[in-house]
Amino acid sequence: MEYFVERVNDLHVLDIEQLVQESEREGYRFVTRLVTEFEDGTNTFSKPGEGLFCVVTKDAEVVAIGGINESSLTQDRDVARLQRFYVLDKVRRQGVGTMLTQSIIDYAKDHFKEITVRTESAKADAFYRACGFEFDDSASETTHIMRFDDKE
């Protein structure tokens, strides 16, 4: 199957109900929060450097989503946070998550000096390490960090 990463400018035009339902069944509420926050304007991934991305099939089925926000955990505007990242179970371990993560990293390194993320899952820990993040839980809301040395 072929997959394509797309930048999402308007969440309203995407059908992500399958992502919402599956993530809720797995006990994750962050995709639901993505929808709620986009609806109420709390987080539309529209500040400088921010972006929301999805992975779609050639038939336009959304199989993964994730975004990058300016971190609200620090006053440093050069620090970003990977947020609302979810991949449908049926496409996991097929490179979809890596493709999405790499696209977000490629975009973010032009805007930020580091990306942080928080996870509580051993599988997610292994995934983020494989994507180049370093384990770092020195801050309470962060478990992994990727620093860009060439960002001035």
Rank of each mutant, 00 (worst) to 15 (best):
R77Y: 03
R129V: 11
N43K: 12
V62E: 05
I65W: 00
E152L: 11
G66T: 03
E61G: 01
A124D: 01
V62R: 05
E6H: 13
R77Q: 12
S23N: 07
S138Y: 07
A130Q: 11
D150M: 13
G51M: 13
D15H: 05
F133L: 13
T101R: 01
T98D: 05
S138H: 13
F45G: 02
D76Y: 00
S103Q: 09
F112H: 09
I68D: 02
E120Q: 05
V20A: 04
S138M: 06
L82H: 04
L100T: 07
D125Q: 07
L14H: 10
Y28I: 02
V56S: 13
G67R: 09
S46G: 11
S121F: 04
S140R: 15
F45V: 03
D76K: 10
K109G: 01
Y107N: 09
D150A: 15
S140F: 13
Q83T: 14
A108Q: 08
R33P: 00
S140C: 11
E37S: 09
S46V: 02
V13M: 06
V5M: 08
R118M: 12
Q102T: 08
F148D: 08
K109A: 02
Y128D: 07
I105F: 07
Q102V: 01
V5C: 13
E26C: 07
Y128E: 02
E120F: 11
E134P: 04
K90A: 10
E61D: 11
L11A: 09
I105C: 06
F133T: 11
S72F: 12
E37F: 12
F85M: 11
K123F: 00
K58R: 13
Q83F: 00
S140Y: 11
E2H: 11
L34A: 13
D150S: 15
R129Q: 14
S72G: 15
R7K: 14
D149N: 14
F30P: 00
R7Y: 02
K123T: 04
R93E: 04
I104P: 05
I145H: 01
T119Q: 05
R84M: 05
I115Q: 07
T101V: 05
D110C: 15
A80S: 14
S103D: 08
